[in-house]
Design a binder for these strands. Structure first.
Lengths: 273, 273
DNA sequence: ACGTTTTTCGAATGATATTTCTATTTTTTG
DNA sequence: CAAAAAATAGAAATATCATTCGAAAAACGT
């Protein structure tokens, strides 16, 4: 185990913090190692133990010892810190493009749209109702069959939900109202089923009607919607508020999709776990 | 030696140029490899052959074959390209925000998903092909009727595109293949029409077939896809690369939706302005 | 539909990287 | 200054990785 009182650093930042804190005093070679990986982290991430040792001017075994002092089983474990830190940060193609103030109207709109999406996503972090989220997963995981309902703007969300559920082996029915058969479909719902409804304002689609039928038939109902005023709220066992921003009248769906994917993931995890 | 007329690429940029030139035609697995390392270069740089092969969904030996086609002795040689490119580009110390350690597995996934969405959106800013974007708008605005085509993961995008177009008064046909009538629908396309196709890897849906028909019927074809290896590229008058990030196998659609909305907005603006 | 060529897979092999261990050197301490 | 403790280097052992190769499958052309 770690020869230090510390628990072993889980991230590169933690490691750096420990190193810079000055609380650890290394003998010569180990200090050499510490200095090298402070100054050349990318070499550590990319190289083999032999290459790193060579560049740092120490023996490979010294690197292993160093790693073990921090509680790692060996160099590979330790190196993973550096790799993780580096992952996802691929250098951009050197376009040297200056963030030009957008002269182009269409591009301006694109940027605005991207901004709206990011704002929507950002709101998930604040005031997210974790309990409701968990409960929704419970209900959906317990269901015999999941009915996915949503129209108009919500329809893209439900199609993706349905597709993903199916790909994960979770049986579900996408109530798409092709052939105007939606009411007949929800007429087949049993109390052992669950409904996953998605609806955004204005709430003038048939979604509330369909969910009302499901409610009468005593199915569990979980809802993603964008305000407490949604007619679905009073029909639902649990619901989650996801507010999408819009730009120039075009609304983002990014947050709803992200939350939806997380729901699917949770259901799968619960069923298989 | 290299099975190609080319001398082997000495840098990552050269490799990328060769790949995007479209002059090389790969069989299925090798194409898979090409797509993966196009989209996840950092995984290639940081991983072992086994890890990369796993993520790309191929055998390790396939990676070796791929490298050898380009004249390298093996994977290690080839990987050096990626490592070199990455070297020296250590990510900046992030703004010291402490990531609240997420105790809840489901919440952790949600955060990851949000991150994937934001990363996808972020990539729009860098290296976005404005010219293609403008040309796409021109083509679509000039069309008599717009056919919107996309299956599987792309379908949520096309439904939203079709809905939004209709709401903005732009007549369009969503080729949804309900009743397996998609081929008959595209059989009605005329040279005055335009096709807006959306397709992501793996490109194993009927979308390429449908677009091929439209191409024969001399319609303008504009495409949103995620790599130059999409079979739609060679059929398209203009195309745009939109790379979506994934988290735990669940892929974001945020960037594609944002770009799609911007396209719709541009078409409307051009028609009414 | 058949035979040929190309491509893929997976196990066996060879190479390399990592870790462990011990003799030796250096540092610390009484 | 000597003895004990700690640290180091280097070699040996182990584990992992990369590559090769032949059989099976798929694709292609006739």
């Amino acid at each position: 185990m770690a020869a230090l009182g510390y628990t072993k650093p889980q991230t590169y930042e933690e490691l750096r913090a420990v190193l810079s804190s000055g609380t650890v005093h290394f003998p010569k070679r180990l200090r050499q190692v510490a200095i090298f990986l402070w100054q050349h982290p990318s070499e550590v991430a990319l190289g083999t133990i032999a290459q790193v040792a060579d560049q740092a001017g120490v023996q490979p075994s010294t690197l292993v010892r160093f790693a073990q002092i921090f509680g790692y089983s060996g160099f590979s474990d330790f190196q993973a810190l550096f790799k993780d830190r580096m992952k996802g940060s691929w250098p951009d193609p050197q376009g040297s493009q200056e963030k030009a103030p957008e002269p182009n109207a269409n591009l301006h709109f694109l940027n605005g749209m991207v901004g709206a999406c990011q704002a929507s996503l950002g709101r998930i972090g604040t005031g997210f109702d974790v309990d409701s989220f968990e409960t929704m997963i419970d209900h959906l995981a317990a269901a015999e069959l999941i009915y996915v309902i949503g129209s108009k703007r919500a329809f893209p969300v439900t199609t993706y939900l349905s597709l993903t559920l199916s790909q994960q082996g979770v049986r579900n029915v996408l109530v798409d109202n092709v052939g105007s058969t939606a009411l007949d479909q929800v007429g087949c719902i049993t109390p052992r089923d669950a409904v996953l409804a998605v609806s955004f304002s204005p709430y003038n689609s048939i979604t509330p009607d369909l969910v009302a039928v499901a409610h009468e038939r005593r199915a569990r109902i979980v809802t993603i919607t964008d305000s407490t005023f949604s007619p679905l709220v009073k029909l639902s066992d649990t619901w989650l508020e996801v507010v999408e921003q819009d730009f120039g009248g075009f609304r983002s769906l990014a947050a709803s999709l992200a939350v939806g994917m997380a729901l699917v993931h949770g259901v799968v995890a619960q069923r298989t776990g």
